[in-house]
Amino acid sequence: MVYIFDTGIDEALRRQGYGLAVIGHLVLTYRLPLTTIKEVCAAHVFWAAARELAMLNGSSISTMSLSEMHQEQADGSIFDRR
């Protein structure tokens, strides 16, 4: 799984497809499900479009809270490279 904790596009460059291009690159490069950590509500439309893009490429994007990420990290399941 690929975890996305924080992402941002300079305000002057927003709404030009750069963010979706990055998500598309992650989906196609890693071919793994993506998980966002604590999505910002203001980016709801962006993440809806990103989920559609991921789905079209045979992947998915889920989200988890910061506490869920900390729990996975404590359990050892996050960053497990076996």
Rank of each mutant, 00 (worst) to 15 (best):
I61N: 07
G17T: 06
I37P: 00
F46R: 07
S77N: 09
L13G: 01
I23T: 06
F46D: 05
A42L: 03
I78P: 00
N57Y: 07
A54R: 04
L32G: 02
V22E: 02
Y30Q: 12
Y3N: 07
R81C: 11
L56E: 11
R81N: 12
W47N: 06
A54M: 09
G58C: 11
E11R: 12
G19Q: 02
L32S: 10
T36M: 02
E39Y: 04
E72A: 11
Y18A: 05
R81I: 08
T35Y: 06
E68Q: 08
D6P: 00
F5P: 00
G58F: 04
A54Q: 06
T35L: 08
V22R: 01
A74S: 12
F79H: 10
L34G: 04
M69S: 10
L28Q: 15
R14S: 03
I61G: 08
S65Y: 07
V45T: 11
D10V: 13
F46T: 09
A50Y: 01
G17F: 04
A50M: 02
S65I: 06
T63L: 07
T63W: 05
D10L: 15
A74K: 10
S62W: 01
T29K: 15
E52S: 15
A48F: 04
L56Q: 13
L34N: 07
L34D: 04
K38C: 13
V40F: 03
F79Q: 10
L32R: 15
T35W: 09
E52Q: 14
M1N: 03
G76N: 09
M69G: 05
R15P: 03
Q73R: 12
F5E: 15
L53M: 13
Q16M: 10
S60Q: 03
M69A: 12
E39P: 14
V40Q: 08
D80L: 09
A21C: 04
G76S: 11
Q71C: 06
L13S: 11
V27S: 01
